[in-house]
Each structure stands twice: as C-alpha cells, then as structure tokens.
Nucleic acid binder design. Structure first.
Length: 259
DNA sequence: AATAATCACAACCGCCTGTAA
DNA sequence: CTTACAGGCGGTTGTGATTAT
C-alpha cells in the first residue's frame, strides 16, 4: 500500500535540535488550539518541522505536566517491575509513571537499568539456582510469542516491539474463564446469542467478535484501562491473572495470538 | 592537558493501526 | 473494499557532556 512518507526529505524542513523560538511557537500554538492535527499544525503555527517532529517535541519535552529531574528509586523499581512484565512497551510503562515519557523511560532503561541488570545477572554465581527461586526472572527466549505463558505458568513478554492488542482464546480455554468466578469481559457473544452476564464482568478487556468457524473469541486489550496495573508494584501480572482465572489458561497456549 | 571511552537524552526513522473518503 | 492519511510506537542514531586514562 503506497503512502507518502510523513516527512519527505525533499521538503525544506528544519531538522535536528529545536531552537527556543521553535519551542515557543509550538507551545503557544498547542496552548491555544490544543494537541492533534500535527501535520497541519506545523504550517498553521509557522513551523518548518514535520508533524511527527512537533508531536514528539511536545510530548517528550514541552508538555507542561512533564516531570523533570532524576528517576527516583521508587520509579526505578516500578520500571523494572513493569518491564519484567510488559517488555519494551515503553508507552504502557510510561502510562504508569505520571509525568514521565516513554522516551525518557526507554532511554533510562537502555542507559542504566539494562546494563545494571545484565551485570547483576552476569555476576550471579549460580544463575540456574536463582531461576529456580524466581522463575519470573528468566531471560527472554527469542522465538516465543510476545505474550506467552511459560511452562511454569508465569507470563513472559517478548521484548521485541510487537504490539499486543488482541488475544484469541479458544473455546477450550474460554470455558474456565467464562465460568464463574471472575471474568474479564464486557460481554461475550456466542453463536447462539447466549451472553455472559455483563454484571459479572470487570474489565480491561473488550470482546470484539466471534470467529465463526471455531467459536474462538477475540478480545481487545484496553491497555490504558487495566486498573489492576495500579497494583503492580506489589504484584506479578501472572499472579493477578491466575488469581482471577484460577490458572486455567493453558501453559501450552499456542492460541494466544497477537495482532 | 589531551585524548578516548562512556553516558545521557533528544531526535529521527520505519513500521504499524485506525479511520475517513 | 481500497487507499491515503494521521497518529502512535519502539528501535536506533547523533551529539554534547562527563569521566577515565
């Protein structure tokens, strides 16, 4: 599908570091007209920048609610925890750290934490013993699904950036989840139109449709609204899930798909 | 003091999804 | 249904600052 590049290199656009004047133009414009419509914004604001560049500058630097200063110890612990859980999904991680941007967290991870954690791993005299003690700390294996269950029932998120917004759960897997207790879905539609009681459903997930052939269900994550994430400093995601579905998602779940 | 190595982080790039026409 | 566009994301790069030799 052919499409024009967002920022054509032929265009006479400024690149590189932003000047104070450009910052002011962008800030004034966004304050007056609000965010969005970045491409047209550049012209209207009188900026010789591509829309993406403006968006990035605003989100990562000019936005008034950005927290300046060093990452605190608490924030660092939370980042490590969330990264263990979510992998390199920086925007999600940033969403749990008010005032911090995905770029900032990504940079912090790449320059500080990754190296430090690697060092720690390397220094540990007996990695395998450690893994037994804490299975969730396993190093990512390369060809797993981005969101898979390990044989020990712990979830692992692949660090390769792959957006995981949809999960397909087979009917087999669905049974124990749909059966009470506790359900994640707003509503479930079967081919016979039997719906699960929406009252019994809390949910960060939204059922989208039923695949006709095998009755597998596809659901979308509303990742921004995963309320239980607020409890993450104290919990592992795997625990949260297992607490809620009693661990019925099969560890051999090849049907956990992404995209 | 000079140079090399490392760090920190802003910015860019390419790819993806959602959506309107 | 197809296409083009806007916006969003994660990976990577460029560069100035800092530290080590």
């Amino acid at each position: 599908m052919g499409r024009n590049p967002c920022c054509s290199k032929d265009e006479d656009l400024n690149r590189g570091a932003w000047t104070a004047m450009e910052d002011k133009l962008l800030t004034d414009y966004v304050k007056t007209h609000g965010e969005g419509k970045w491409r047209s914004l550049t012209k209207r604001a009188g900026l010789k920048r591509c829309g993406k560049s403006c968006r990035l500058r605003w989100l990562n630097y000019l936005r008034p609610d950005i927290k300046r200063g060093n990452i605190t110890h608490d924030e660092e612990e939370l980042i490590i925890r969330l990264h263990k859980l979510l992998g390199n999904r920086w925007s999600l991680i940033a969403g749990r750290l008010p005032g911090r941007t995905d770029n900032e967290i990504k940079n912090y991870w790449n320059t500080n934490l990754r190296r430090r954690l690697q060092k720690n791993n390397h220094n540990s005299s007996n990695l395998k013993v450690k893994e037994k003690e804490n299975p969730n700390s396993k190093i990512q294996q390369p060809d797993q699904h981005p969101f898979t269950m390990n044989t020990d029932s712990s979830f692992m998120v692949q660090t390769k950036a792959t957006r995981c917004t949809k999960v397909v759960i087979s009917q087999e897997q669905l049974k124990p989840i749909v059966a009470p207790p506790p359900i994640y879905v707003d509503h479930v539609i079967h081919d016979d139109d039997k719906a699960v009681d929406p009252e019994s459903i809390l949910s960060p997930f939204v059922w989208k449709e039923v695949d006709n052939d095998d009755l597998d269900l596809k659901l979308d994550f509303k990742m921004d609204e995963l309320d239980f994430f607020s409890d993450l400093p104290n919990k592992d995601f795997s625990q949260v899930l297992l607490e809620n579905n009693k661990g019925h998602l099969s560890p051999k779940s090849d049907n956990l798909l992404h995209r």
